[in-house]
């Protein structure tokens, strides 16, 4: 992908984000924060690439270890973020009549 295509995706996604987030009910703003937290850990994609990438023979394995640590941190966030969001959302109930 060239830079302009990427930029186009980015700008359009900002607009989508703008309209989607304004339609979130204020009562769910805390779950909104925890779920955005979980999804922003999609950065794990970069971490995985770093941790499995081939290194030149004899090269310092540091990038691999950085990647693996990042995979671990992002995993905390992914599992933690989705689990805590699910836990919160399960509590929102309507009046039982």
């Amino acid at each position: 992908m060239d830079f302009i295509s990427i930029l186009s995706i980015f700008v359009l996604a900002c607009f989508v984000g703008y309209y989607v987030v304004w339609s979130v009910t204020p009562a769910l703003h805390t779950p909104l924060m925890s779920v955005t937290n979980a999804v922003s850990s999609v950065i794990i994609v970069g971490a995985l690439i770093a941790s499995v990438a081939p290194l030149p023979i004899g090269a310092d394995p540091l990038p691999k270890w950085l990647g693996l640590v990042a995979v671990g941190l992002a995993s905390v966030n992914i599992f933690g973020g989705f689990a805590v969001t699910a836990r919160m959302l399960a509590m929102y109930k309507k009046k039982t009549k």
Binding site: I6, V11, C14, G17, Y18, V20, V21, N37, V42
Partner: peptide
């Protein structure tokens, strides 16, 4: 990119 833009705007 999509996620980053969503979370950033949120």
């Amino acid at each position: 990119i999509i996620t980053g833009a969503l979370v950033g705007s949120s």
